[in-house]
Every structure is written in C-alpha cells, then in structure tokens.
Nucleic acid binder design. Structure first.
Lengths: 151, 151
DNA sequence: TATTGTTATACTCTATAACTATA
DNA sequence: TATAGTTATAGAGTATAACAATA
C-alpha cells in the first residue's frame, strides 16, 4: 500500500516558497531572479533553454534577464555557432550574489526546520528526492513536447 | 552529527513552487490566491491575521481578497465585536475551487514524484514535517514581534 | 494614540500576439 | 518555413506612505 500523502502538500510548498522569497529578498533578489541565478549557476544556457528549465515563457525570461544584466549579475554573449541564439551566464558578481542568496535561504529554512516537532525526520532530508524528480520530470515533459510537435 | 543539508534546498523549493503555481493556474488560481484559500479553508480570519499568516503586507491582502471576492470565492463580513475588523471566509464556491486546486496540485506533485530515483524515500513523506515547522515558526516570529513592539 | 483596512503609486513577473533576424 | 529572442501590452502581486474609521 502506498504511503499516505501528507495533507495538502501543495499548500506546504506554497508557504515554504514565500519564506524562500523573503530570504532571497534580503539580498535584493526576487524568487524568479533566484531561480534564474540558480540555473545559470549550474552552467551557461541559451535563453530558450532557460525558459524551458524555468517552465516560463520566453518573453518572461527576457524581462528577468534584463534586470539581472542591468545589475551586472548576468552577461549576454553571442552563441558560438547559431547567431539567433544568445548565451547567458553568471558574472563574478552574479556568482557572489547567488552564494549569498543560497546562504540566506538555507539559514531561514534551517531556522524553520528547527521548529519541527521533535522526533520527526530531518525536514531537509525530505527535500533531496525532489530535486532529481524535478529534473527527470522536466526531461520527460520536454521529450513529450518534441514527439507532439513532430506528430 | 547533524544530517547533511541537501544541496541548495531553497532552489528545490523555488522550482517546486513554480510547478504548484502552474497546477493552480489550471483552475484559474494564482499561487497567492491558492495560499489565501488554503488558509481560509482552515477557518475564518480577519484581514490582519491573514496578512500575518501569509507573511505579506496588509495592502497586498486587500488586493488579493478583492479579486477573490469579485469571483465569489471569498466573502467579507463585519466582525462581531470590533467594527474596524473585517471577517474573511470562503463561500461554497470558494470551498469547491480550493478542493479542485488541491486535487490538481496533488496530481502534479504526484506525477513529479513518480520520476524520483528508485530507492529514494517517498518524496511526499518529506513534506510532512515542514507544515508543523512553518506553523511553529510563525507563532515564534509573532511572539518576537509582540515583545519587540512592547519594548 | 494605536490599530484596522483601504487607497494611491510604483516595480516586478507573468502571459499572448506580433515583429526582426537568422537558420 | 521554422526557430530565437525582443517588443508591445495587459493583468496580478508585492511594497511603502498616507488616509479614514474605530478602539
């Protein structure tokens, strides 16, 4: 028998996200900007690929990147071979701000986790499996879209 | 020794929240609206108390509630004793939409969790402790603010 | 005086539709 | 023709400051 679903897991995620948003705000980052820096921190991306990873429209990416470029946290470079594409990557400042954001967010989550009921599992451990699941889910969705447009 | 923190837990929460946002959008709810309905689903609240629970400013609450009232999902009633206060609660439609949103969100999270690596813990189980932790954290913060304003 | 809720205002993120440049 | 990225435009959420009503 499958494990019982926790009650309204989405509500928990939504509330947790607001706390992450507030922590990111302490280093002047919105939640969306934090998502972008987090992805670019794992490697450079073209704008389209970034939109795909963020699950957001391309115009939305343009807007968020505009703000980060203006603050000197992200750099737009020409793609090596395809001149339609734009290669996005973090600047040194971007890397520093991302590190500070990660630290602030982790600090806040740790503080919240400190209020967990004694005897419950370590809350952080429960987040681990989600990362890989999110990656695999995105890959699967992407494959679906490709098959569909080829349909 | 404390359990190792998962890598960048805040990034995981941020990405998960975007998926919740997309699921809530399938029933025409924004993430903020979903948060509001979720709290009011647990019981009626005054606007100030709601702002506190959402960790959001009072003007922000006014705006979100305006939209939900216009759609007939939330009702503003006079407070029983304090005429400055406004009592907020779900309508029957609000309850129905909240239930649909919970179902859609849970469905998407379940689909994502289905892509977790075999052998990892049930991802949903990991979300459980956070709910109580968030509640306790909010209570503690509230107590701090009271002590602070009392000087 | 202090608190509750709203209004006024401004900024960011989101989306869709339409456009330019390149493939 | 199709794809990459941007521009134009509109709607929603967030905040701060200032205000009205009530305590």
């Amino acid at each position: 028998m499958a494990a019982e679903l926790s009650e309204h897991p989405g509500r928990v995620v939504a509330r947790l996200a607001r706390q992450v948003e507030l922590a990111a705000a302490t280093v002047e980052l919105t939640l969306s900007q934090y998502r972008v820096l987090g992805i670019l921190g794992d490697g450079r991306e073209a704008a389209s690929a970034l939109a795909d990873k963020l699950a957001v429209s391309r115009p939305s990416v343009t807007g968020v990147i505009d703000g980060l470029v203006a603050r000197g946290l992200v750099r737009r470079d020409p793609h090596e071979t395809d001149r339609r594409r734009i290669d996005l990557g973090l600047t040194d400042d971007g890397l520093r701000v991302l590190a500070r954001a990660d630290a602030e967010v982790e600090r806040r989550l740790t503080e919240i986790a400190g209020h967990a009921e004694a005897g419950t599992d370590e809350p952080f451990a429960g987040l681990g499996p989600w990362r890989a699941a999110l990656d695999a889910y995105r890959t699967a969705r992407h494959a679906d879209r490709m098959a569909e447009s080829a349909g």
